[in-house]
């Protein structure tokens, strides 16, 4: 399935957001996620299906002003 992850096109096997994080080796990294610009809570990732052409954002703490 082809989706966008952090702005890049990728072919992935994962069918849920949680599985995607596992497939992309996020492990227990502290990240927040959004699917098609909607926030998805960490506890909801397992129940969040992915579909063709979805756009996923995976973000982590960063320096900011």
């Amino acid at each position: 399935m082809r989706i966008r992850v952090n702005g890049l096109e990728r072919d992935v096997a994962a069918r849920t957001l949680a599985a995607l994080l596992e497939e992309l080796e996020y492990g227990d990294q502290l990240v927040a996620t959004a699917l098609n610009r909607e926030f998805v809570r960490a506890k909801d990732r397992v129940e969040t299906p992915l579909r063709e052409n979805d756009s996923v954002e995976i973000v982590a703490p960063k320096q900011g002003g």
Binding site: G7, E25, Y26, V59, A60, P61, K62
Partner: peptide, 10 residues
């Protein structure tokens, strides 16, 4: 102040 930015797996 802090921010959030895209991060790669690993």
């Amino acid at each position: 102040t802090v921010s959030l930015r895209r991060e790669a797996g690993g």
